[in-house]
């Protein structure tokens, strides 16, 4: 068995900013906790800042390590690494951790588990059908602990907990694939988060950093947003809440394709690059130079394919 070693990377040079920040320039400054940002009172404080009233005039101080962002009069600090904090309308991938009274608790990698209520899911037999008591008792026939699903953030409860819903055909239990976790910062907000890659692999990029990579489902499947005129009433319970993968229908090549895409996404995350469908495709193409999928786990290979993908992105 071959064992490879790689040397550590050298730390980059660092410039430390002193004194009051010049709020008028558009340069992004890195601040750290306790550092003062500005004492100009015209600015309002946003996330990641606090007002230090022990001095006169009060100083706007940072509580996080990150970039100072100024939007008109609002000053906030955006950290590079932080747990996902949701926004209404975000598409997220989550995992069920608890089945409770008329609701599920879903882990979405944020400060508290999100809630998916029984009233927020599509029930088999049609969207319009009324909830029965038997539904409550059989919650596990829909989602059980450990299931992975894709959902949208509908609202927030008063204590900041996300309220999810799956009231659309794109949202449902996820099958036939693998789960990858990347830092949430790397997932950008785009028009669509469901991507069908040309290599026969579907990718769902949850804004919370949870990604689902699966074999492309044929027509009549769940990820088909573009399909027009689908009969909303005919939600097939078998399909949506099934616990069976299409075991016989996924052959070795398809599995390798899924594995390859997973490794590409992991490589992009490791090199801390923004992740979207275009760069995944470029990374996939670059990775084809390594016929053995497990080679993509090597650090130098990860660097290589990321660099190539990034170059292609810039030139495109």
């Amino acid at each position: 068995m071959q064992v490879s070693f790689s040397a550590p990377r050298a730390a980059p040079p660092v410039t430390v900013h002193h004194g009051d920040m010049d709020m008028d320039t558009d340069q992004t400054h890195i601040v750290t906790p306790g550092e003062s940002i500005t004492s100009d009172m015209q600015y309002m404080r946003g996330h990641g800042t606090r007002l230090d009233e022990s001095s006169d005039p009060p100083i706007l101080t940072s509580t996080l390590a990150g970039h100072v962002s100024r939007v008109n009069k609002l000053v906030s600090v955006k950290p590079l690494k932080a747990r996902y904090t949701g926004d209404i309308g975000d598409i997220v991938v989550g995992r069920i951790v608890d089945v409770g009274q008329k609701r599920w608790k879903v882990d979405i990698g944020s400060k508290g588990d999100a809630v998916l209520q029984l009233s927020s899911i599509n029930l088999p037999g049609g969207v319009q059908r009324r909830k029965l008591e038997s539904d409550e008792k059989q919650m596990r026939t829909f989602f059980a602990e450990g299931d992975v699903l894709v959902a949208e953030v509908q609202s927030f409860f008063a204590d900041g907990v996300c309220n999810l819903h799956t009231r659309s055909l794109n949202f449902c239990k996820l099958r036939n694939g693998s789960f990858v976790v990347v830092p949430p910062r790397l997932i950008q907000r785009t028009r669509s988060h469901f991507h069908s890659l040309p290599c026969g692999v579907d990718v769902i990029l949850g804004l919370n950093g949870y990604v689902w990579v699966s074999k492309t489902v044929r027509k009549g499947g769940r990820h088909n947003e573009t399909k027009v005129g689908l009969d909303e009433d005919a939600v097939d319970a078998e399909m949506v809440y099934s616990n069976k993968n299409e075991a016989s229908a996924i052959n070795k090549d398809e599995r390798l394709a899924v594995a390859r895409v997973c490794n590409c996404i992991a490589a992009l995350a490791h090199e801390f690059k923004y992740i979207n469908d275009t760069i995944i495709v470029y990374a996939y193409e670059a990775s084809l130079a390594y016929p053995d999928v497990q080679d993509l786990l090597k650090l130098n290979v990860m660097e290589h394919i990321t660099r190539e993908a990034y170059e292609q992105m810039k030139n495109a």
Binding site: P12, V16, I30, T32, A65, L80, K81, F272, Y310
Partner: peptide, 18 residues
């Protein structure tokens, strides 16, 4: 400690924006 944090951040920022 501040230098260590800044170095860690700078490294990620460099990678992100290259």
């Amino acid at each position: 400690l501040d230098t260590v944090i800044r170095q860690g951040m700078q490294q990620l920022v460099n990678q992100l924006e290259q």
